[in-house]
């Protein structure tokens, strides 16, 4: 991974020194993997970490080999690492339970059709409640670091837009006050870093450029890193394949067949490497964000050990200054 040498002043602080790291990005690029890898780096630095999943439904996926956390309470999945799912509707009910202490009234509210209607239809209400819940977790002082892993699909910006939209739409009242508190946290560069995850291919890159621009320009939120996942870095070159393909034939048919397949795989890897390289350059040029590249891992099945390996690879980049303290065992699965 290439890194420009920069002044300490212009170099953004490590995302792990913040209280809240929010990961945005197009679906299917490995946001959960990056979120978990970041969490593992922080846990090795003896931080108490909450990994919050923003999921529209609670079918509870196994994230990067770590079991899902059903229910409203955080579950400790590794020593120092807690997981919790945030869902807007549940967050709203939790909130109402706090402000309406009478259970019978509350039940009547939940059952009423006007309430059902409003929860289902009010634009952005669920997003606003979910992000309010994130604020609550950051503010209550239980965690050194809260990492928000946005939904498996959808780019998560709708969550970041909501506090500002609500704060501007509702010029007085409770929503205005609550939205402003959340917005102030999100905008504070000492507390928050909004990072983006992508892969270096055409469509994700187009979307990522737009996401980074919106985060920095329209929303004016403090940017973190741009994680580029699944980067192919071939140790083969096209120049080497020419002579190999032109070798004299006449060996055993089985060897010849294997040879053709191996050369095809090499061509494939070289092509992916070139594609990733060129889109990586575009990302750097068009966003100006700091890139953190994660290699494509050739695995039959992607598991927790692979996330661990990735976390060690990104560690020197995302947490360069701090040194791990001795005397604590490595987390076990």
């Amino acid at each position: 991974m290439k890194r420009r040498t920069e002044d300490a002043a212009t170099e953004p602080a490590s995302p792990l020194e913040r209280r809240l790291v929010f990961l945005a990005g197009k679906g299917g690029v490995g946001k959960s993997t990056v979120a978990t890898a970041l969490a593992l780096v922080a846990v090795r630095r003896r931080k108490r970490v909450l990994l919050l999943g923003l999921d529209s439904d609670d079918r509870g996926r196994d994230v990067a080999g770590l079991r899902p956390a059903p229910g409203a309470e955080p579950v400790e999945v590794l020593p120092g690492l807690f997981r919790q799912n945030v869902e807007g509707r549940a967050a709203l009910e939790e909130y109402l339970r706090l402000v309406v202490p009478v259970r019978r009234v509350l039940q009547a509210v939940f059952d009423s059709r006007v309430y059902q209607y409003f929860v289902a239809a009010a634009p952005g209400l669920k997003e606003l409640m979910a992000i309010g819940k994130i604020w609550y977790e950051v503010d209550r002082g239980r965690w050194d670091l809260v990492i928000v892993d946005s939904p498996a699909t959808g780019h998560a910006l709708q969550y970041l837009r909501m506090p500002k939209a609500a704060y501007e739409t509702f010029t007085t009242g409770l929503v205005h006050r609550e939205a402003k508190r959340v917005w102030d946290l999100l905008r504070d560069p000492a507390s928050t870093a909004v990072s983006v995850v992508t892969v270096a291919e055409e469509l994700p890159v187009n979307e990522t450029v737009a996401i980074c621009r919106e985060i920095r320009e329209q929303l004016a939120l403090p940017p973190g890193c741009l994680f580029v996942n699944r980067v192919h870095a071939p140790d083969l070159s096209a120049a080497e394949l020419g002579p190999a393909a032109a070798r004299p034939r006449g060996g055993r048919p089985a060897d010849e067949a294997l040879c053709r397949a191996a050369l095809a795989a090499a061509e494939e890897e070289i092509a992916w490497g070139a594609l990733n390289e060129s889109y990586g350059r575009r990302l750097a040029a068009e966003t100006g964000w700091r890139l953190v590249k994660l290699p494509f891992l050739f695995r039959e099945e992607f598991g927790f050990g692979d996330v661990e390996a990735l976390s060690r690879l990104i560690e020197p980049v995302v947490a360069p200054a701090a040194k791990p303290r001795p005397g604590r065992e490595e987390p076990q699965r």
């Binding site: 080497e240 070798r247 055993r252």
Partner: peptide, 18 residues
């Protein structure tokens, strides 16, 4: 290597990638 790919280092990298 039996099929004539040389040098051995190239055959090794091709094989690992495959």
């Amino acid at each position: 290597e039996r099929a004539g790919i040389a040098p051995a280092d190239l055959a090794r990298r091709l094989a690992r990638n495959f």
